[in-house]
Design a protein around this nucleic acid. Sequence first.
DNA 1: TCGGCGACCTGACAAATGTCACGGGGGCTT
DNA 2: AAGCCCCCGTGACATTTGTCAGGTCGCCGA
Lengths: 201, 201
Amino acid sequence: MIRLLLADDQALVRGALSALLSLESDLEVVAEVGSGDAVLDAVRQHCPDVVLMDVEMPGLDGISGTQQVRAAFPGTRVLIVTTFGRPGFLRRAMQAGASGFVVKDTPAAQLADAVRRVHEGLRVVDPALATDSLVAGESPLTPRETEVLRAARDGSSVAGIASRLFLSEGTVRNHLSAAIGKTHAANRAEAVLTAESNGWL
Amino acid sequence: MIRLLLADDQALVRGALSALLSLESDLEVVAEVGSGDAVLDAVRQHCPDVVLMDVEMPGLDGISGTQQVRAAFPGTRVLIVTTFGRPGFLRRAMQAGASGFVVKDTPAAQLADAVRRVHEGLRVVDPALATDSLVAGESPLTPRETEVLRAARDGSSVAGIASRLFLSEGTVRNHLSAAIGKTHAANRAEAVLTAESNGWL
DNA sequence: TCGGCGACCTGACAAATGTCACGGGGGCTT
DNA sequence: AAGCCCCCGTGACATTTGTCAGGTCGCCGA
């Protein structure tokens, strides 16, 4: 019997996945949580074999959650299940210690198999996504550029970003200009979009 | 026996919902589709009582799909199941003829009840979302303003938008300026964000 | 110890953006 | 017919944005 923990912020999806996986005779969902903060406590309490983790969650995100779980319970495997196939997500998830990475538009039948393989210690990765990850490569942005670009996501002006990050306006403009260049964008907005779609933010 | 059709682009979610609803003795999932274009054919072929429809789908979106289904098969009820609780989505979905609107973070146990109520001819709407919809109101944007703002989503320049919409640059600027004013934004980017979060695009 | 790199700043410049005032035309209702 | 709203356009204007060239500082590896 493989003991499972589900972590997903959408209750409906959580319950539905639980129903789907409970159909398998060798799988057992022992707990469900709806936020990243609750994952570690739930693992401590229920000692699951595998954690199914969503990336986008309120509180602690799935990547950080994976790190925490792996650090505290090295025997527990983590399988990331996410909506968006951002190349950067895959890379960061694996570096954080995840054993598998499944996108939500894979057929339902494959999920149980993925869980079993992860439980056996194998790695499960969507092949198409893996190649994307190789093509897109690591983020070319420096930490500061990433931070500035992330602050620009909500459409703030240079002045707003500068005051929020305690920087000079000129510095912000320079960082933005660098980020625009590195993302081959023409715009701050375009730079945000491509960086986001690559999982660099 | 209530016959169901599932329309959702994410195969995993689709299968999971199918598993969840099949647990109920009075519900039966007779078909699943992964794109909006396939909905009408599937309804014609399987004659479901209720269609569970996602809003964001490739091809035809859920709103238009609802319209088509209601026009061709007035007896078939549509229950919208979506990730985002955009006020505008709710409004447009109801106008398109949907019988219910459920957000994906409602508890899984309530979904079956929602399906049964919709099947009985009742309307099912998340109360919190309904008030949001009243507060946010209808889109203040004119059709043209909406179109221009939608074209600005990918970070295009004024020139790019103008050429794509066969407009003068000045006209595009005027429409954008109007949209910025109506959304109480300071920016084109901010205007896009608030309009998007209200479901006005 | 030196070179390279990233973070930070300044100043200046061209280009893009947002705003305003002002038109004309068409469709709608009163 | 008059008034209203939307669409489309022009021109001018101030502001913002993106780029470039320069310079200081601290860190790290060769």
